[in-house]
Each structure stands twice: as C-alpha cells, then as structure tokens.
Design a protein around this nucleic acid. Sequence first.
RNA 1: GCGGAAGUGGCGCAAUGGUAGCGCAUCUGCUUCCCAAGCAGAGGGCUGCGGGUUCGAGUCCCGUCUUCCGCUCCA
Length: 545
Amino acid sequence: MPATTLDQLVSLCKRRGFIFPGSSIYGGLQGTYDYGPLGVELKNNLKMAWWRANVYERDDMEGIDATILMNRLIWKYSGHEETFVDQLVDCITCKGRYRADRLHDGHCLLHPRKHPGECEGQLTEPRPFNLMFQTTIGPVADADAYAYLRPETAQGIFANFGNVLTTTSRKLPFGIAQIGKAFRNEITPRNFIFRVREFEQMEIEYFVRPGEEDAWHERWLEDRLAWWRSIGLKSDNLQVYTVPREDLAHYSKATYDVMYRFPIGFEELEGIASRTDYDLGSHSRDQERLGLTARVQTNTDSTERLTYYDQDTRQHIVPFVIEPSAGVDRGVLAMLTEAYTEEQIKALKPERQQAVADALDAFRKSVGRNDKLPAEQQEALLERSDEIARDLPASLPQIQALLDLPGANTIELGKKLRGQADPAMDESFRTVLQLKPALAPIKVAVMPLKRNHAQIVEVARRIRKELQADGAIRTIYDDTGAIGKLYRRQDEIGTPFCITVDFDTLGEGQQAELKDTVTVRDRDTMGQERVPIGELHEYLHGRLR
RNA sequence: GCGGAAGUGGCGCAAUGGUAGCGCAUCUGCUUCCCAAGCAGAGGGCUGCGGGUUCGAGUCCCGUCUUCCGCUCCA
C-alpha cells in the first residue's frame, strides 16, 4: 500500500537524505526545505523528465530561464501588486481569521450560523497581507529601490515573448517552457513540502490563435495527465477539478486543477489555466490598437508591442495563452507518495504477532475507557483499532497511522503498542520506493558479498566504476553490512538494481561456468539473475528507461 | 498572526528537583556465499534557544523559536 500518512514520508526523507527541514541548525525556518543527496537526484530526474517531454520531444516548444528579480513594473502590470494581496480581519472574540472581501462566506467559530461581524465578536481593521516577498536593490534602501522575488515564473516568459519570437521565427501555436524558483509569503506553510515559501515551478505558456484556446485547453489537460501517469502516478490517484467561475484568478477564463491523492487528501498538483490575451495585453504598449478581449490595466510604461504577425490574415494579433503550471516539489511529494510501499516479505513469528495483538487490545481498551477524549476522536481510534486487529498481520503498517490519529498521543499505552509494532515491522516487512527506474535517484548499487576479500572488492569496485564511466547513471558502492541489510537499504531509497559480486564471479565457487558473472537483484520482485559482467551495460540500459 | 498540543543522540522512547540512560540506526574489526544473522568494540546529547527560581533544573516559572492540529493561503 502507498503512504497513508505524511509522517511516513517525512521520516523516510529525513532519515535517508531526501529532504531536510531548512536551516535546522538554527532552529529551522518555516516553509523551507532543503533537498539532500538523494532528494536532489530525484528532483532533477523529475525536472529532466518534464523538460524532455515538453521541450525535446515536441516540435512546438522553446525553453528559457529568466531571472527571479524583475523590474517592479512587471508585477504592477501583471496585476500581482494589486491582487496578490489579501485583506484579512481577525475576530478578537472567537479568534477566527477571515478574508475581508469574503466575510459573508465565513462562519463565526462560536456561532457557526452567523457570519463574522454579525455576532457580538469584535473584528479588527482589515490588514493587507502581500504574498510577494520584497527586497531592496542597490546600496541604498530607498523607498523606490525595491523589487519582488517572483511569485511565479510565468511573467518571465511573457516578458521574453518578443525575444523568443524574433530569435526563433516560431509560428503559432507554440509554447515557451521554464523551470525555476518562485517565492510566496504564505500565511501558513504546511504539510511538509506541499505548501512552502520557496518552491520550484515547471511552467509552460502556450500561445494560440484567439478562438482556438478552448481546444488547446482540453488538449493540454490530456497531455499533462498523460505525463503524470508516465512518471508513475496511477490514474485512480489523479482527478481533474474544474475551478468554479467565482473562484477563478484575475487572469483566468477557465482553469483545470490536476489533483493528486496525497496523504492529506486530494490536493492540487498542477493548474492548467486559460489566460486569454490578458498577459500579453497587460504588458504591451499601444493597448488600444490591439483589440484586446481581456480587461487590462492601462500600460503607460511598456516599450514593446507584444503581438504576433499573422501572415495568412496579414494582421497583428495578440495570442491567447494556455498555461500548464506544475509544482516541482509537489511532484516530488506525489512521486514519493505513490512509490512508498510497505510490504510483508516474511511470516511473522506467532509470539511476536500475539504480542502486537495484545498491545493493540490494551490500547483499544484504554481508548474506550478514556472519557477526556472528544467523542469523534475516540470513535475514530476504536474503529481503526478494530480494523487493524481484524487484518493482522497484513495491517501491521497501519499501526503507525493509527498512532498518528488525533488524540492517540494522549493514550499512554500507545507507546507500548509502538514498542511492539516496530520490531514486528522490522522482522517481516520491508519499505520499498517503487519509483520508475528512470526517476530513481540511484540506478544501481554494487556490493561485494564479502567486504574483507580483496579480489571480490576489487572486482566490485571496477564494475561500479565502469557503469558510471559515461556519466549517464548514478551508482553507489556499499559494503557496510550483511547482504540482506544492504538490499533493504537500497529498497528504501528506490534503487532498481543491486549487483553482487561473489566467489563464483572470481571462478572460485562451486560452479565454474559462473566465472565473470554477477548477481543482479530486482528491487520490486526481489528476484535474482546471473548476468555476465560484459553484458551488464546492455542489460541495465534497457531496464532503466 | 490567533487559539490548542508538543520539543531529550539520526529515529523511537526512559529518567520521585540530585552524575542524562535504553532500543534501533551509524562506524570499525572478525566470520567462504544472497534478503535488516552473530560476536567484539567505537562514535554521537551542555535535554530547541535565552533568562529566572533553587545549594542543585530535562523536570518548576517567564520569554522566544520551531513543529503538529484548526482559521485564512490554490504550484
């Protein structure tokens, strides 16, 4: 089963070096995460897969890499200065916080039937909360010398529309792709790397003839869903949400959200927006001559006319835009969620299973007796306990999720239960990341079956060196444990293949014909195959796509 | 930002106000052979941070930071 709690992923990521909380040596910084040795590989593989599919494998795309700092006017005319601000009011009485423009949608926390302000609660004055980070440019912090860290990469593409057009002689329809960092001063970063203040986007602005935007919108939705499936996300875990008209962003005519079933529920992975001629129109000079359909702010600063000359109709037109915009970090999280598997590979000893069952029973009784627990939480805990008890030992991995439920940490016997469940898990389960081989951070691990045998070690090291000689794959050499331990370690980080060198390889085993062959062990099936060293390259090459 | 809960080696947990321990993990050595084996050993914590009370604070008090759960945030 895939990951059911975020904690499982957070713990694995931290333990094995995928993702760490940012600035942790100084107590951390909310909403920032650092990618470790394995995380950077995984993330790079994801970005590369996206770039390949959207730039290399299409004939209608160009790529760019624009700056994070841009002229402030970009954000003035994009509408962000005005609309990327939320006016918030707090209720001093009920402690709720509401958007000033949406008081009527809010519900007082003390009187759920009333809207904030209609009860006796006291509201504060609206306070602006700008989601853009500001920074100063130049040596003097003048009031005018500031800039924003970009809150989205998209504007860099619009700002370069003219440059790309004149240097590539592209014809409509065509797109521009970009991967890069974006920054948002989120009020509440939450849920691991799902909502963070510094994140990375993979964005496409696809320019089409006016009138063709709806068809392209559908087309891009299909393309993007297919791509997410191609990197391993299952259809069942993907959903499309059509954003209701009243929730659309200021630039959007229609938006699809691609939702993924994260451990926290279905949440947005990518937004595919139909942006009309809003963006190019907003940043263009001579707006009045362009026949824009979007309502844009009058631009008195732009030096360029962002139009496309259509040879067929001999007209200058402002292309419409379809924007598929995905979160890299959310993609990583989705991949991890999908790939994470806890699988029983050995029977549990009866006495061990009994001990877990007893501890679970004691926990359940303690929950039942506890009258301080809110009824909902108590019920949820009891129900979950019963489910697990019924399906032991297969349900063993769910004990962690049970102990993560709200209220569980108030039950003292929870610790006892964990104490029994953990060793039982170690004994008969393995954690494996079933990532697509092409995306796995490490492709191959090479290990000597005996680390204190000079020749075996030498051959193993040589194989590793040869495999990585062309720089195409990341490999690892590990001899710091018994073979079973090494296999499990690689399973946990998703390494698709392990190569083991033994006495047979040297021709010193019982089967002389195995000389110069090694064992290749498959991550998912745990099956083993004997492969001649000379054929390794070919063998792996075909299986790592 | 507001309200609630919590911070002890990498992880999971202990420690009536009296020298901070255990398990797992990590590392080294030994073991002739495939799924977390065994044996021997080693490293790692001024208990999130700062202040206070006390002869003495992981433990009590205040502040602060961070995390988790709600409210607002749509990559």
